[in-house]
Amino acid sequence: MAHKTINIKLKVWRQKDAKSKGAFETYELKNISVDSSFLEMLDVLNEKLVSENKEPIAYDHDCREGICGMCSLFINGRAHGPDDLITTCQLHMRKFSDGETIVIEPWRVGSFPVIKDLMVDRTAYEKIMQAGGFVSVSTGGVPDANAIPIPKEDADEAMDAAACIGCGACVATCKNSSAMLFVAAKVSQLALLPQGKVEASRRAKNMIAKMDELGFGNCSNTGACEMECPKGISLAHIARLNREFLTANIKS
């Protein structure tokens, strides 16, 4: 069966390395199957560039099934492109029309510097997690998994928050480059569960302090992050984070 195809024009951000100045370059592609994914379209472009002895476009990607959080493209002004609740790798070409110009940029966030072309450095997220994104439990010596019943509603809500893939779309979308949704997702998940509740306030305080130190902005409650989150993480978790943070400040 013949697949439907489209012709497109791409404006792609090219930047040699962190220190160099970048610029857009324009490419044209013909006969792209609408059933191919956005990244497969970029593969076709890269294969073409390699055959012309030009450097292919560097971009982060790995699992290509929407869960690893590696892919991180800003497409036509939206994190992960023109569809809801997906990562870049889940975006398909059927979302674009024949003859369309597609603009591709990296995340534009001071705390996530560009490494090359469309790749950014998200080490700042690692540091926030290391500051408190865990339950301080070591391997072994824990009670039976069913020793503490957890209300289904709490477990479900914790799971909603835990679905975060750490891609950075929320920060890239926020006009203040705030990492509040990312931090809130982890703080909220663990605060909802009895195992994590014990150190919930301390966790909130440490993670927020690290977030501030790394230059992420403040939250001004516009809700843009929630709109672009590929996993639909709710703004309500930020409210829970604020509660834990407040408790921590009162206690100290």
Partner: peptide, 13 residues
Amino acid sequence: IDQAVAQGVPFAR
């Protein structure tokens, strides 16, 4: 399973 629950893994309940 015990270890994962202690870490805050939100298994289905």
